[in-house]
Design a protein around this nucleic acid. Structure first.
Length: 877
RNA sequence: GGGCGCUUAGCUCAGUUGGUUAGAGCAUCUCCCUUACAAGGAGAGGGUCGGGGGUUCGAGUCCCUCAGCGCCCACCA
């Protein structure tokens, strides 16, 4: 490329319009971000990308955190790393099911047969009074596949528009054949090693979704409730308990009080009888009972809450469940309810929802005289499934678990130690992890009674009595994966043997979505196929994610990696913050959807939106700010303008970034002030590099940006007159051949700084930097070499004094003109700088530039201890 | 109840082993069409760094303590 052709590529009127489409297309066709899978592990930087859930739309939170990751990816790429940066779509699981139900107006009924060429009743926005149409499981899954494919295209378009430097050829989805195979294989490995097991146990249950849920998916919500004082009938009179769930009285299997509570000590070991149902239950002492709660003595029910489960287990109490999986009181009273009055009381409750049953039982207690006083209204925290709408119940059911240290001290300690092996960004996030692991109270429940997920890949033999044998499941061969045990038949059986005595039955459940997404490093690297890609990228370098899913995604990934590979899945975790409303409240979904990312891209440009995101410190919750986007837009425009200006000067060379070490890096730069500017830039490069190595994209940006504005406002202003050289008649700068060495020095320095600045900004603002780069360089800036501090001469104290002094004198001249309300072009008759010797030397070295930049007639210095600048404006006639 | 984070200008935030007079952007005000940029530029005003105590020659920075805000976890009768 010749210099003149380079110059000709500079547009007359630089503009950011259309850069996103232009470069998205160019990056795609030129494969700028393609991962070289022949790279060895030491040359690779691997990112375990969070796969967004495909159940709605991407919002500003995604834009925010994915931008952070992308800046790191781009930096590493420019450093010469082969960046493994896949994208994944989490299209597996409940959120997708729910979206499909709402979008098409259907519901899954596994008992129905498949209908070919099925047409759903609606495509988007079914009317409110529409009753969901039941469809077969295969039809339902087809609809899931259809809708996720459409959603995923929209997601990809948005991420391309945002400028993510993802290698799209590495795309994975969590419901794909490959992900199902990986997930089932990992599960079977866990099973073979004894890390997965099945057990019948009390389980947290969402009655609306009809599925078990895991500890990690719980959340508390404050709900109104009421204390009901209820009388139990003891040998020596009544025992008053207080309960928020009187409807569970028929499920009561005991009473419990603190061992030290003298009020109840005489009752320990004695029996009392429940009101209305006349069931005899024991009174037990236990340290978990709190004397100051209610009356200090509580019902143990099967099951009202998790503490009930603990007591039930420890005292080996009977199971007298009354709440069914549909959330209603079961029809048949359990065997302990025997009396006629008791049975007819129960009959009133049978079939009612929990809420209705409570109202009914309060009336019954009131008329029987067992309700003491009126209920006292309170609000209290109640456990919900995080995606659910009704409080969780606890029902007994058979489920699959993966060990996670919740019931095993040594495993817990091993997982805690794994957390210590990693680097956390920010560091304090490690506490979230250890806090969670230390607080686990059970193993990881992975089975879900749902449809659109990865099936649990096992069958059970059916004994002669028709009961499945859960203790020794039949597992498929690895080559057969993925399987669906509801349709596939295990080796040695025929389809006719399904469900019959002596035959087999498939496990009906699917795995929790985290059971698959905990394998993203393995899925993305095709571990299950024995692909050598795995050993080139694993353990990965970086796991970016939100801090809200440390307990789910991060922890579960750690568990799987610990079991499967005996090590951590990545070296570092980068936890991003939240987006907050401008009023500092956590940004609500509804508000987040009002301002869509695309609108903001249109309004400010992708680079400007990225600038806002990249300005936020890693891990810090950040207010949504269109003002910051405006600032980013200004920065991008400024970069265009200053590039155009600098390239306006013909130079001997184009400051190739990758010139070899034998070249004199400051070739052609002779003036001290030019060298000083390059030295300052050198320090900025070093700072930005250190910051990026620490994943601190924000600091890198801030350092670069503040240098950049100083460069534009002071340095360029100081040297521009010199850089022009002898201006020709039409006002154009002098040709390079006609320039003196000091004039060329300015031009060389400007070129070098420009080249470095464009590269320094490239990770943050990929579109405008590639645009300006393309005006004078070959190839994409995103494949250019990251600037190194050896490209410029090292900083020195003298050079900083030179620049600071020159800047101070210049701004004093400006201030004088501004305060005198005259144009900055106004002539200055005299400037006298009072300063010390080193500053005097600085003024001498910047003398001719200062004089030109300030239109100064006389510039002199006098000796003094403190720097002072006296500016005398020329008289205006 | 346990853990973690935050508190610096009207607003949003920097401030990296303690080191001149605490910075930036936005907002406000003033001025300037200036030949890269008026969708610009040059300037100004504005802070007892949450309160108190301590260490130190020196504290926004380290220690103690109190307060407010936020988050995570536990509790849930």
């Amino acid at each position: 490329m010749s210099k003149s052709s380079a110059a000709r590529r500079v547009p007359e009127k630089p503009s950011l319009a259309g850069v996103e489409a232009k470069f998205s297309e160019r990056w795609k066709t030129e494969g700028v971000y393609i991962f070289d899978r022949s790279a060895t592990r030491d040359r690779v930087f691997a990112i375990d990308t969070p796969p967004p859930t495909v159940s709605g739309s991407l919002h500003m939170g995604h834009v925010f955190s994915y931008t952070h990751t992308d800046t790191i990816a781009r930096y590493q790429r420019m450093r010469g790393k082969d960046v493994f940066y896949p994208m994944g779509w989490d299209d597996n699981g409940l959120p997708t099911e729910r979206r499909v139900q709402n979008y098409f107006g259907v519901t899954c009924d596994p008992s129905l047969a498949y209908v070919a060429n099925f047409e759903p009743p609606f495509r988007g926005n079914p009317p409110k009074d529409h009753r969901a149409v039941p469809v077969s499981r295969p039809n339902f899954i087809e609809l899931c596949d259809q809708l996720t494919a459409e959603d995923e295209q929209v997601f990809e378009d948005l991420f391309r528009r945002l400028g993510l430097s993802v290698d799209w050829s590495l795309l994975y989805t969590t419901i794909s054949e490959h992900a199902r195979r990986t997930s089932q294989r990992a599960f079977l490995d866990n099973l073979a090693r004894g890390e997965a097991y099945t057990q019948e146990a009390p389980t947290l249950w969402d009655v609306d979704f009809g599925t078990a849920v895991a500890q990690a998916e719980l959340e508390d919500r404050e709900r109104p409730g009421a204390y009901h004082a209820v009388s139990f009938h003891g040998p020596n009179g009544e025992v008053i308990i207080e309960t928020t769930r009187p409807e569970l009285i028929p499920a009561c299997v005991g009473l419990v009080a603190h061992p030290d509570d003298s009020r109840y000590a005489p009752l320990f070991g004695k029996k009392v009888r429940s009101p209305l149902f006349d069931v005899e239950v024991g009174v037990y002492p236990h340290a978990l009972a709190q004397p100051d709660k209610g009356t200090g003595i509580a019902m143990i029910c099967t099951f009202g809450d998790l503490t009930d489960v603990i007591w039930w287990r420890e005292f080996d109490l009977p199971t007298r469940a009354i709440v069914g999986r549909d959330g209603r009181i079961v029809a048949e009273a359990h065997g302990a309810i025997v009396g006629e009055a008791a049975r007819s009381n129960y009959a009133i409750l049978a079939g009612k929802s929990v809420k209705q049953a409570q109202a009914a039982i309060v009336e019954m207690l009131r008329s029987s005289g067992d309700l003491k006083g009126e209920p006292r209204a309170i609000t209290h925290p109640v456990k919900f499934y995080e995606k659910g709408d009704r409080p969780l119940e606890i029902v007994t059911s058979r489920q699959w678990y993966i060990r996670n240290g919740g019931r095993d001290e040594s495993l817990r300690n091993a997982l805690l130690a794994r957390g210590e092996e990693m680097t956390w960004h920010p560091d304090h996030m490690r506490h979230r992890y250890s806090n969670w692991v230390e607080g686990l109270n059970g193993d990881w429940l992975i089975s879900r009674q749902r449809y659109f997920g990865v099936p649990i890949p096992v069958w059970y033999r059916v004994a002669a009595d028709g009961q499945p044998d859960y203790d020794s499941p039949i597992v498929p061969g690895k080559a057969k994966l993925p399987i669906d045990p509801s349709t596939d038949v295990p080796d040695g059986f025929t389809a006719q043997q399904r469900g019959v005595a002596g035959g087999f039955v498939g496990d009906p459940d699917v795995m929790d979505t985290w059971a698959t997404s905990s394998l993203t490093p393995q899925i993305a690297s095709h571990w299950v196929d024995g692909d050598d890609l795995f050993k080139r990228v694993f353990p990965m370098d970086m796991r970016p994610q939100g801090h809200d899913i440390i307990r789910t995604w991060l922890f579960s990934t750690m568990v799987r990696s610990h079991f499967a590979h005996g090590g951590i899945p990545w070296k570092r975790a980068a936890l991003s913050g939240w987006i907050l409303d401008p009023d500092r409240k956590k940004m609500s979904k509804s508000k987040g959807n009002v301002v869509t990312p695309i609108d903001l891209f249109d309004k400010y440009g992708s680079d400007a939106v990225r600038y806002w995101a990249a300005s936020a410190r890693p891990g810090v919750d950040t207010a949504f700010s269109e003002d910051q986007m405006k600032v980013g837009g200004k920065l991008a425009t400024k970069l265009l303008n200053v590039t155009k200006f600098v390239l306006n000067f013909e130079c001997i060379e184009k400051s190739a970034p990758s010139s070899g070490p034998t070249n004199d890096q400051n070739s052609g730069v002779t003036e001290l002030i030019d060298l000083a500017m390059l030295a300052r830039l050198n320090a900025v490069v070093a700072d930005a590099t250190t910051a990026f190595e620490d994943l601190d994209y924000a600091r890198a940006l801030e350092r670069t940006e503040s240098f950049f504005w100083w460069f534009c406002d002071d340095y360029v202003e100081l040297v521009k007159t010199r850089a022009y050289g002898r201006v020709s008649a039409d006002g154009a700068p002098a040709r390079a051949a006609d320039c003196s060495p000091d004039e060329l020095s300015a031009r060389h320095a400007l070129y070098r700084a420009l080249s470095a600045l464009q590269r320094l900004f490239a990770p943050h603002m990929p579109f405008c930097t590639d645009e300006v780069w393309s005006w004078w360089q070959d190839g994409s800036v995103h494949r250019a070499e990251w600037p190194t501090s050896t490209e410029q001469r090292g900083a020195s104290k003298d050079s900083e004094i030179l620049l600071d002094t020159a800047s101070t004198v210049l701004s004093e001249i400006r201030r004088t003109k501004t305060e005198a309300k005259v144009s900055q072009r106004a002539k200055v008759s005299e400037v006298v700088v009072t300063c010390d010797a080193s500053q005097a030397e600085a003024v001498a070295n910047a003398h001719s530039d200062l004089v030109k930049a300030g239109s100064v007639a006389e510039l002199s210095t006098i000796s003094g201890s403190t720097l002072a600048v006296a500016v005398t404006l020329a008289q205006v006639s």
